[in-house]
Computed example of a mutant assay.
Amino acid sequence: MAASRLEIMHRASGSLLFSFAFILFGSQVRAQQIPAETIQGMLAAQIRAQGFTCEKPLGAKKNARLSQPDRDVWLLKCSNAWFRITRVPDMAAKVEPLP
């Protein structure tokens, strides 16, 4: 039995609706799957670029006592070491491995 024109139009409209919904919401689904970058990830990348080894960043905490308005001091915990990182705008970070 051949499908009637009405059935064919109904199937085509369903496919068109699905395609339209995917175009509208597909980018939002993909964007939600990208993990947000964390401060420990950014600090680890910065010290790696300066020649230090941070195998896996596990956490970072800002040291409010040592920080100043234009100088942030962070403690970075990596799976292999601890670091004190002093960041000043437009300069390389001062990185101190901690025992």
Rank of each mutant, 00 (worst) to 15 (best):
M9W: 08
A49L: 13
A64F: 00
L76F: 02
M9F: 13
T86N: 00
G41N: 11
E7T: 05
M42Q: 13
A3W: 01
T86Q: 04
K61L: 12
C78D: 03
Q68R: 11
M9Q: 15
R5P: 13
K77D: 12
P89G: 10
P35Y: 08
E96M: 11
L43Q: 04
P57D: 06
I39W: 07
R5V: 15
G51I: 03
F83A: 06
G59P: 09
P89K: 05
K94C: 08
A93G: 10
S4W: 02
P89F: 08
R65H: 14
F52Y: 14
L58W: 02
R11I: 04
A81R: 05
A92D: 13
E7F: 03
C78I: 00
F25Q: 09
A81T: 03
S19P: 01
T53H: 05
P89M: 10
A93Y: 00
F18A: 15
Q68W: 00
S27C: 04
L66F: 05
N80T: 06
E55T: 12
Q50R: 05
L17F: 03
T53Q: 05
L17S: 10
S67C: 00
V88I: 09
L24V: 13
D72S: 12
P69S: 02
M91R: 08
G41I: 15
R71F: 04
S15R: 11
L43P: 08
F25A: 09
T38W: 09
P35T: 04
Q28H: 10
F22K: 09
K94W: 01
Q28A: 00
R11L: 08
P99Y: 02
A49D: 14
H10A: 15
P97Y: 00
R11G: 11
G59A: 02
S13C: 09
T53K: 03
